[in-house]
Design a protein around this nucleic acid. Structure first.
Lengths: 208, 208
DNA sequence: AATGATCTTGACCGTTTGGTCAAGGCTTCC
DNA sequence: GGAAGCCTTGACCAAACGGTCAAGATCATT
């Protein structure tokens, strides 16, 4: 089947692009990982750039999927918890995709600039409106929504993009499921308390 | 002077590596930006990799400088405010350095793995101990220090690494000084409130 | 079984890139 | 003024890379 073969190539491409960047990745490496000769890869994807575009589009769709979880509820605690949780899950399950995206932004988005200016901009503007309404309704503290969103993006994606650093600081081992869950709860806890959406976590009694 | 020439080359190299990644950057581009022929560049830095190492080392030293600001005070509010503020300033003043660093981690740190395993690991462990003491003393809420640090790193560096995305969402314009200051205050405010180090920001009265 | 369409592949090509080299300046010190 | 060391540079090279191509293999349809 054509679709399956393409899918296998795309999967290999995502891994190689994530590890080596657009320029650093070679069609030969991708072909080898996909288990086919380079010439065959070029039969399915005429150019390296076309292949890369497909990889980036796939990643953007995953991002869109997560974005929807923002709207699961109109309650700030539920909505933000769901959104952060979903973004953390993506970082754990699709770290390579996140890395390709990060690479693309880092290099000034030569391929996906149009997505940034349309879909991402629209989504962001509408969610800023939602957050501003929550503030007006006194449901969260008056924080600048824009920078709150950046904080959520940065923090959640960090667990994918910088997973090598995290692993190194974890003794060279990836975070266990329990550790990752603790990270997720920490992130959600700090952000929700930070915007006054849920009561602050109680401090301990001073030790002495 | 040798030192000045090397410095000019390193500056050009940092810019080009930040924009194009290690592989994407060419010694020809770096030489052109530095205003010298490529052969001359190779007189000062025999290989591309040697040049890259020097760039990365420079960036790591800037990071170390910021790391020190963590110890300006033993008060959590002051220490974390100073540290976050300093990291935000670096993101604004040296975005290219941060990008080179991000690229390096993204690609599994082929060049600076030893720094991660020594200096960074030691620094992190000792600061985790400090934060744990604050928790034991009841000065901040019991959050996992490790994930708090990651959150600070991710959020502050985001303003350098993803500045292209931020600019795009800001109508294609870089954040103004006022906007950037607001971002910084938002980040500090959310994190400090999030860990119960300072009283939560008061919510507005509900509008109706 | 024949025919045409689709897929597979080793060999090949032009371009780009990191790096070399030899010839020529420039500066310094006797 | 000349010798020695340092710096500069255009021309060049080998390797790697994206992409092509033509010849063959496989498959579907009748």
């Amino acid at each position: 089947m054509r679709a399956e073969k393409e899918s296998a190539i795309l999967q290999a491409a995502e891994a190689v692009f994530a590890d080596y960047g657009y320029k650093g990745a070679t069609t030969g490496m991708i072909a080898e990982l996909a288990g086919i000769p380079k010439a065959n890869l070029h039969y399915y994807f005429p150019t390296k750039e076309a292949l890369y575009r497909r990889v980036v589009e796939h990643i953007f769709n995953i991002w869109l999927d997560a974005a929807n979880s923002f709207d699961e509820s109109d309650d700030p605690v539920e909505a933000l918890s769901a959104y952060i949780s979903k973004k953390m899950d993506i970082s754990r399950d699709h770290p390579m995709g996140s890395k390709v995206w990060a690479n693309e932004i880092l290099h000034r988005a030569p391929v996906i600039q149009d997505y940034l200016e349309t879909t991402l901009r629209d989504w962001t503007a509408s969610r800023i409106a939602v957050i501003n309404r929550w503030i007006a309704e006194g449901r969260i503290a008056p924080v600048d929504p824009q920078y709150l969103l950046y904080m959520i993006w940065a923090t959640t994606q960090h667990y994918a993009d910088f997973n090598h650093q995290i692993d190194t600081l974890n003794g060279g081992e990836p975070l266990s499921d329990a550790q990752f869950d603790r990270a997720k709860q920490t992130v959600i806890g700090i952000i929700l308390a930070g915007i006054g959406a849920s009561p602050a976590i109680a401090r301990k009694e001073a030790a002495e």
